[in-house]
Simulated scan of single mutants.
Amino acid sequence: MNIIFAALGIWVIASLSIYSFIRRSERRDPEGKGPGIIAVTSALLALPVAAVMGGILFALAGSVQVVGWLFDLELSPGKVGIFAIAVLVYLFSADSLIELFLKSVMGKSAAGKWVLLFTRVLAFYGIGLLVGAEDQTALPVAAGLAVMLLVMEVLFHLLKKSGEGSVRKGRR
């Protein structure tokens, strides 16, 4: 249920942001649209944003549940939802900056991936403790989620590489 409310919150914030952007742009046009049309347009444009973010939250919450199930950990659904939302905020803010910093310092080496994995484990562990998970629960969940994200990134990179190779072969 937390995921639904989070997706609704994202939709409202995105709708208001798009509304204000369109409204500001329409002030320059003397034949601008009315506020009703702008509200409907902004609400419709915000739906894909909310759907994608809701899907990512759903995947994160599912990953946390799988790790909890594998290690037989006690996680309440409320804590899982709040943990997934906090991880999503971290991934789209601080993690992106840390990843850019590591790529600029270490390049695309395996050591950079290991350092990124370690920082994610620490960050997810801290988020787990902030959410209220016990030490015995927070560390396996943090490590499992960080490893799952690393595996997904590596698989995505390999899929992207194999797709580029097939396109090049098809052009010849």
Rank of each mutant, 00 (worst) to 15 (best):
A86M: 08
S104F: 03
L102T: 10
F83A: 08
D135E: 13
G107T: 08
Y125C: 07
P77T: 11
F101N: 07
V105W: 11
T137N: 10
S96G: 11
P77Y: 09
G112R: 13
A123Q: 06
V80M: 09
S109W: 00
L88E: 13
G112I: 04
E74F: 08
F101W: 14
L75W: 07
V87S: 13
D135Y: 12
A143N: 09
A110P: 00
G126Q: 09
L102Y: 04
G132I: 10
E134S: 15
A84T: 06
V105M: 05
A86R: 01
A123H: 05
K113D: 09
E134Y: 02
R120I: 05
A138Y: 01
G126Y: 05
A111T: 14
L139Q: 03
A84L: 04
S104G: 13
T119S: 11
W114S: 12
L130G: 12
V105H: 05
I127H: 03
V121I: 15
P77M: 07
I85A: 11
I127Q: 04
V89M: 08
V131D: 01
S93A: 13
L100T: 06
L102I: 15
R120A: 10
G81R: 05
G81S: 14
Q136N: 08
F124Q: 06
F92Y: 15
P140A: 03
V87A: 15
G132L: 07
L117G: 07
L139C: 05
T137G: 03
A143M: 14
K79F: 02
G78N: 08
K113E: 11
T137C: 05
G81M: 05
V115N: 02
E134W: 01
A110S: 08
V105R: 13
V141Y: 01
E99A: 15
L139F: 14
A84K: 04
V115C: 04
F92K: 08
S76C: 01
Q136D: 11
E99N: 14
D95M: 09
V80N: 02
L97D: 00
A133Q: 11
V105C: 00
V89F: 12
E99G: 10
G126P: 00
T137D: 12
A94T: 13
G126R: 07
M106W: 04
A110Y: 05
G128E: 07
F124S: 06
A123N: 06
K103M: 09
L116S: 14
S96E: 10
A123T: 10
L88H: 11
F101A: 15
L100E: 07
F101T: 14
P140D: 02
I98W: 02
G132T: 08
T137H: 06
L91M: 14
L116T: 06
R120C: 07
E134C: 00
A123Y: 03
V121M: 12
L100V: 06
D135C: 00
T119N: 00
D135I: 10
I127Y: 01
L102Q: 05
S93Q: 04
V80I: 15
A111M: 13
A133R: 02
F118C: 13
V115T: 11
T137K: 06
L122V: 14
Q136W: 05
L102H: 05
A143Y: 04
E74R: 14
K103F: 05
A111L: 15
F83S: 10
S96M: 10
E134F: 03
V87R: 00
G81H: 04
K79H: 09
A142M: 12
W114I: 15
G107W: 01
